[in-house]
Design a protein around this nucleic acid. Structure first.
Lengths: 108, 108
DNA sequence: TAACTATATCGCAATATTACGATGAATAAT
DNA sequence: ATTATTCATCGTAATATTGCGATATAGTTA
């Protein structure tokens, strides 16, 4: 159906999944990698860097912003995008939770 | 188009994105959370825990396994699934790369 | 004001994802 | 052998995602 049963999961589970979902596309990973190595960060430069149209890049930026992974501040005619680290602890905590020693007890 | 231009991204970018993609669904997050808190890990128990049909759970398990996030070993008529931590360092490294101090220079 | 630049949004087409019932395959139990 | 149990796969339907051209919006510049 392409639809997801969001009603029955915890808010925490939904939040984590939505962040990972936003990270689940190579274009968005590439955008974040690009932003990470830049001191300046104008959308136009991303368009020049990636093999996508300006419209597609813009859509990916909207998704990253909606997920809280980037911030955008208007700077004249252009927009300065940069990484928002707010949700990183959530990701790290989730990964750590999966690393509890109880997992070692099976599938060895 | 729903299609992704995989040709033009680096293998590293594609690998990271595919792992995150597998994590980008609440059912799969819930499955991993469930596996993490169990000492035993039989598929049937997951079906009882989540609000999805056995067929849907099975498909999510296949995706998690394809992404290398879980392992499954046959145990009689049932299958023992548990978490595979192999790719966790990749995730951690990626997040760390996004936290370089250069990001602090704009969008303040 | 009028052109120019930069980014966002719309509309469409193509593909991907999700979910489920039904069915299949394989082992276990009677 | 038959039946039951467990998980995987198939087929289908519905929805989501992706990408792009075209267009809109907004600030800048002349």
């Amino acid at each position: 159906m392409g639809i997801t049963k969001t009603d029955t999961y915890t808010d925490q589970t939904l939040a984590v999944a939505s962040i990972f979902k936003a990270l689940g596309h190579p274009a968005r990973i590439a955008i974040l990698e690009f932003l990470a190595k830049q001191t300046s960060c104008i959308c136009g430069e991303i368009v020049a860097e990636l093999p996508l149209s300006q419209a597609s890049i813009s859509r990916h930026l909207v998704e990253l912003k909606a997920a809280g992974l980037i911030q955008g501040t208007i700077s004249g005619t252009s927009v300065c995008y940069c990484i928002n680290e707010t949700h990183f602890p959530l990701i790290n905590t989730f990964i750590q939770q999966l690393q509890t020693p109880t997992n070692q007890s099976c599938c060895s």
